[in-house]
Amino acid sequence: MIGIGSDHGGYELKQEIMGYLNAKGYEYRDFGCYECEACDYPEYGKAVAEAVVSGECEKGIIICGTGIGISIAANKVPGIRAALCTDCFTAEATRLHNDANILALGGRVVGAGLAIKIVETFLNTEFSNDERHINRIRKIEG
């Protein structure tokens, strides 16, 4: 199960991504927002992050206007490694090296076509399990 959430700035891109997830048969839960009316990104970033940490969702996708604020909010939840990605290379690298469990995107930064390719890369790339990366993640988690 994938958790997905956005504020108003990411709402339209979230709709595009959910269409992709539906077409590919992914199970997901939409944590909001549910319309384009102005709202606060921290509540949606934290909701997805808490679902990932609890195990309700395996991974998450969060979207705000830039992806910055919502990723900061999600990363406040212990155990979350949310990565803001603007291309497929960073999406692949963050899964391989950081075992990122949440993908953050900017709805006003990345177009739908590229965003879907980033999502696909993120969801289909496994963590490398290299000892050096495991050690680095331990240092991040303190």
Rank of each mutant, 00 (worst) to 15 (best):
G10P: 05
I68W: 10
E126Q: 13
A115S: 14
E56C: 08
N124Y: 07
L105C: 09
M18W: 05
E131Y: 02
E35S: 15
N101G: 03
L114K: 12
K139D: 00
I134V: 15
Q15N: 14
K59Q: 14
G111K: 01
A93V: 13
C64L: 05
M1E: 12
Y28P: 04
E120L: 03
P78Q: 01
A91R: 04
I68M: 14
Y11F: 15
N101R: 04
E16Q: 15
G10Q: 06
Y26K: 06
D7C: 07
L13I: 10
F31G: 08
G142K: 11
R95M: 04
I80A: 05
K14D: 08
R108I: 06
V77I: 15
A104K: 06
N98K: 00
G32F: 12
F127R: 06
F31P: 09
H133N: 08
I116M: 10
C36Y: 13
T86D: 09
L105N: 08
G55T: 11
R132F: 01
L84A: 07
I2D: 09
C64D: 15
V48R: 13
D87M: 00
E12P: 01
R29P: 02
P42S: 03
N75P: 01
L105Y: 09
D130M: 12
I116R: 05
N101I: 03
G111A: 00
I140M: 09
T86M: 11
A115R: 06
F122I: 04
T66C: 08
V110E: 02
V109M: 13
G106K: 04
I140G: 00
H97M: 00
Y11H: 13
